[in-house]
């Protein structure tokens, strides 16, 4: 079981590193996807190895996938709107919230 947790921890902290160091908003969003995916693995692994008769972790992972899909759709809509306004999606150019 610990081996699964090590894999998801590596994935999680790769996402954290990308979140800290990238300066493109889409790359930051990709890092967030990595983090969410690592937590999904943890839900499924805890359900399988600690409570194999229940289905709680399974459903938590399922709802987490749905919520991350919704989050990605809204975030990409926001980024396309930003690109339409300032022709760039780098973080350093985003210094005002209203046009």
């Amino acid at each position: 079981m610990e081996y699964y947790l090590i894999v998801s921890a590596i994935m999680f902290f790769a996402g954290i590193y990308g979140f800290f160091t990238r300066r493109n908003t889409l790359a930051i969003l990709i890092s967030i996807e990595l983090i969410l995916n690592a937590t999904d693995i943890n839900f499924a692994v805890f359900n399988r190895f600690l409570f194999p008769t229940g289905l709680e972790g399974h459903f938590f992972a399922l709802f987490s996938i749905a919520i991350s899909a919704a989050e990605t759709a809204v975030a990409i809509a926001i980024m396309i709107n930003i690109y339409r306004n300032i022709r760039n999606i780098q973080v350093k150019n985003l210094n005002e919230m209203k046009w």
């Binding site: 889409l26 996807e33 899909a69 990605t72 396309i80 999606i89």
Partner: peptide, 28 residues
Amino acid sequence: VQIMVYAGGIVVLYVFSILLTSGDGDRA
């Protein structure tokens, strides 16, 4: 569900938006 939603939906959405918004600053 993971393959259908993530690989089928989200990554396609990412690639579309990357190709829509890629300009001179698409390199880190």
